[in-house]
Design a protein around this nucleic acid. Structure first.
Lengths: 336, 336
DNA sequence: CAGTTATGTGAACACGTGTTCATAGCATTC
DNA sequence: GAATGCTATGAACACGTGTTCACATAACTG
């Protein structure tokens, strides 16, 4: 039916060669920096190529030098969480700086493990996994395929797997000490999904720091990391008559929800009636009207460490796995 | 230096064939649904493949049947804008439903046109471009490469380019009428980047609707689509003594910033002293504490239209270009 | 001038797949 | 029993590129 030279096919180097009256090799060389090629010839080829709209097929090129496809998969957390969205933006930008192309997965609630495994069909330079519960299974497959994996927000010990993680327990302890220093004694913890290690670490850090002060938790609750979840949890706590004067939340979004509920449903003043500290330091936390005291889980550091580990791994694929710890920092604003 | 059969190379179909004692063709057939292959043989091959951790190389497979690489590039807007982040999340999820892999670009302020052109090196099934100012130039290159392009948030007439766009002027008019119905007469417009057509359309729609009511704009200002920008703009307006009783903002983030500034810097009550209406209806607009009246730029509809146009284009590459209009909807909450 | 080195060039190969082609065995049909 | 159709299989090809190889030619060097 269709012509053999149907225009819907992409222009190929051979066609450029024919049009320019040179060999196909010359065309390839024209697009390869530092290749031996007569200057005038190269210019002519590039001109013809531009006219025809030719561009070397990256798929074919990637097939060539196995082990450098320049594709990097990113499995991101739910983008409704602003922390994940901001991390992703920085990650995409930085990867481009390294000449890599990011293939993005996830970003919504229900990430299918099947999809993550599917992307491994591509000879990825690396897989960057943010948090998530599928890490173990994915790491196994990555190992067999010799695809480096970088885990962010969690620690895992496996060959070829590097990790970037915030010292969650320490961050939680900083929050506790700040609350205690303000005279708060009846402290609660509002966690997220309990089976995530980051949540567990923040909770145990909270409890340990509390114990050091000779205190015990007044409340241990959990929601779903969302503003709405934090709002609902706080409303339930207030309705249940929970007596707390300070609340440490496992992320900023929930903390903001708690603030809204405390003010609107409970008629409380913050921080007079209730101190609140969040975690992450998303850009929203600094907004006037929120002015949230929080534990910074530094995004710039996280991303730059991810990129450092990535570069190191690409340079020495067999090197020992490494864990880069991000030091939390307490950002004092107006809610504690 | 390194062994020819060094383990750092990906397992290939030929190796599986040798290990299973079959031909390489058989291995390929084992992974191809509906191919003639003895059932026992297929099972054996799949078993050996799993043991070796073999997975067909998607790059080589994509090279095979030209025109179906299953790669789709998404050029997203700044992910600090929650609207773009939420759209991206939905887009990524939906594309996976179509079996496509999204390569994501942008997400930050300074998108380099060079990057967008670079991704065209891959034989993309399509390029999805959100807003942006690089559309014309990119469309030209896409046309030459026969890569379908879908533009969202803007309209452009070019062969092979389909568009999804909100009726911005109509949305602005809805906001104006709602404000006038509330008795507001001194209305201002706070726009975003003035050279974007979406901003222009919202502004002209604002002015036209105002003219229909026999009014003229009290203020025409603009910021950068961010909360901080909205805050600063509102502060300046207040300091400059601008007399307005209603403000229509070109997106929700700025509207929220304006609210914060009006309350904190100007001591104003909303909506008693100043009515505010935003645009987009990001999830944050519904948060208690904000409760922002806004013009919904429906994300689900936008994404589903993008996917519909994508499917149609893939099915019939030569079909006429199409523009899908999204009808804006006024969401009445507490700030107008 | 002979000898070495640097520069150009096209043919051929390799990358790893999906698919066509030709062939063969086997079962079913008339 | 011959003819037909279906299933199964390996060899060979095509996809589009980067790079090596072999071989020229030109430019230096002593």
């Amino acid at each position: 039916m269709q012509n053999k030279d149907r225009p819907s096919r992409r222009i190929t180097a051979a066609q450029v060669a024919e049009a320019a009256g040179v060999s196909r090799s010359a065309v390839s060389r024209a697009f390869t920096a530092g290749a031996y090629l007569d200057r005038a010839k190269r210019e002519k080829i590039l001109k013809v190529a531009q006219e025809l709209g030719y561009r070397p097929n990256a798929l074919a090129a990637g097939l060539q030098a196995a082990g450098r496809s320049d594709l990097v998969a990113i499995v991101t957390g739910d983008l409704v969480n602003h922390y994940d969205a901001e991390i992703l933006a920085r990650l995409v930008q930085s990867l481009r700086g390294l000449g890599k192309w990011p293939v993005v997965l996830g970003g919504h609630e229900d990430l299918r493990e099947e999809d993550v495994l599917g992307v491994l069909g591509y000879p990825l330079d690396a897989l960057i996994l943010r948090g998530g519960s599928v890490a173990e299974s994915v790491a196994l497959h990555c190992a067999k395929l010799n695809i480096p994996m970088i885990l962010s927000g969690r620690v895992m010990t496996a060959p070829g797997v590097d990790c970037v993680c915030c010292d969650n327990a320490r961050g939680a302890a900083m929050a506790v000490r700040a609350l205690v220093a303000r005279g708060r004694r009846k402290l609660g913890y509002l966690g997220g999904v309990p089976h995530l290690s980051s949540d567990q670490d923040r909770r145990t850090g909270f409890e340990a720091a509390l114990a050091e002060e000779g205190l015990s938790p007044a409340v241990l609750a959990h929601a779903d990391y969302s503003f709405e979840g934090g709002y609902a949890a706080a409303r339930d706590l207030l309705a249940g008559g929970a007596e707390i004067d300070g609340l440490f939340c496992a992320n900023d979004a929930m903390a903001l929800g708690v603030m809204a509920a405390a003010r609107q449903e409970g008629g409380l003043s913050i921080p007079e009636d209730l101190s609140i500290i969040g975690f992450d330091d998303i850009s929203m936390a600094a907004w006037p009207g929120f002015d949230l005291t929080t534990v910074r889980n530094d995004m710039d550091q996280t991303v730059s460490q991810i990129l450092r580990l990535l570069s190191a791994r690409l340079e020495a694929p067999g090197k020992d796995n490494e864990v880069a710890w991000i030091e939390p920092e307490l950002i004092l604003r107006g809610t504690h």
